[in-house]
Amino acid sequence: MSWAFLYLAVAAALYGSIASLAKPQLTTIHPILLSSSIYLIIGIVLTILIKLTSRSTKINKSELKYIFIISLFGAVLGPILYFYGLMLTSASLAAILINIEFIFSILLAIIILKERLNKRGVLGILLIFTGLIIVNLNYNDFNIFNNNTLLGNILVVIASLFWAVDNNLSNIILKKGVSISKIIQLKSLIGGTISFCICLIFAIPLGGNINQVPFLIMLSLGGFAGSLYLFLRGMKKIGTIKSVMIFSTSTIFGIIFALIFLKESSKDVYTLLLSSIFVIGEIYFISKEEK
């Protein structure tokens, strides 16, 4: 069971890097084109790997229906709205707001999947929210009513809801026996293609800079594909609620990355450390609950 927590911790770090990697790219790449590029890169690379390893699996019509819905919510609407929102707000603030995805995911898991928590699990939730409150205290940029920032934050929140739906539907498909790599492959190809068609329909410029290619690859295979793969592996073992609770540590990683690479935050290191202690405590209680 310890491997599941390691998967989710690494996934959180990779996911936390998304805002810092994507923010600079949005100055020259349209949000819809960026979304399309990311998911097409993932889909093409996974298709090649699956062909080389001969691990392709067949899926039925019912599973394909779920995957199409996941693609629409998680690889089209979610990322497009997130990137539009990221253009209007800071990467560090987006990293904080994206935590609403975890709240939505937990609520949907309780309502749809009928998952439940015992007292340790509830204590874990309280600890992580305490940590997130601490990390938001005295945050200089946390002004959700500042000009266009409000619209950007709303878009990030809506994107979080779409990704929460994606998380729970993905868990349903995993329980049906569909492989993680197949889910990500089809989701990425379908989502990337739909976004690319939107670019063509609305005559969105298909431009960019050759120097952005390494960042797009890191964003695609690390921030999105890598984090999603490890998240799904962890979720398959310990369920949606516990997985999203651990995965929510991505906020701390996101703020740290924004501080180091984008110089956005003046967040005190000791505040981050104190918040991290609460988050580590949350992981401990969840792991004890599993035993």
Rank of each mutant, 00 (worst) to 15 (best):
I59L: 01
N60E: 08
K61V: 06
K65Q: 09
K65W: 05
K65C: 04
Y66T: 01
Y66P: 00
I67E: 10
F68T: 05
F68R: 09
F68K: 08
I69V: 14
I70Y: 11
S71R: 06
L72V: 14
L72E: 12
F73T: 09
G74L: 00
G74C: 02
A75F: 10
L77C: 07
L77Q: 03
L77H: 00
I80Q: 00
I80A: 04
Y82W: 02
F83I: 07
F83Q: 03
F83S: 01
F83E: 01
Y84S: 09
L86M: 05
T89N: 13
T89G: 14
T89E: 14
S90A: 08
S90T: 14
A91G: 11
A91P: 03
S92C: 06
L93D: 05
A94E: 02
A94F: 01
A94H: 02
A95S: 15
A95C: 07
I96N: 04
L97Y: 11
I98T: 13
I98S: 08
I98R: 03
I100N: 13
E101K: 14
E101I: 08
E101F: 14
I103R: 07
I106L: 09
L107P: 07
L107Y: 05
A109I: 04
I110Y: 14
I110P: 09
L113Q: 12
K114S: 09
E115V: 15
R116Y: 12
R116A: 14
L117H: 01
N118L: 06
N118D: 15
N118F: 04
K119T: 15
G121P: 09
L123E: 09
G124W: 06
G124K: 00
G124F: 09
I125C: 07
L126H: 02
L127A: 01
I128W: 04
F129P: 13
T130S: 15
T130C: 13
I133Q: 00
I133F: 07
I134L: 08
I134K: 00
V135Y: 05
V135Q: 10
L137T: 12
L137M: 14
Y139C: 02
F142E: 05
I144C: 02
I144K: 00
F145T: 15
N147A: 13
L150E: 03
L150I: 06
L151V: 11
L151Q: 11
G152K: 08
G152F: 05
N153I: 09
I154L: 15
I154E: 08
I154S: 08
I154N: 06
L155G: 05
V156Y: 05
A159L: 00
S160P: 02
L161Y: 15
L161P: 13
F162S: 11
A164R: 08
V165Q: 01
V165T: 07
D166V: 12
N167M: 12
N167D: 12
N167T: 14
N168Y: 06
N168S: 07
N168E: 10
N168I: 11
L169H: 07
S170E: 10
N171P: 05
N171A: 14
N171Q: 12
I172L: 09
I173H: 01
I173C: 09
I173V: 15
L174H: 11
K175F: 12
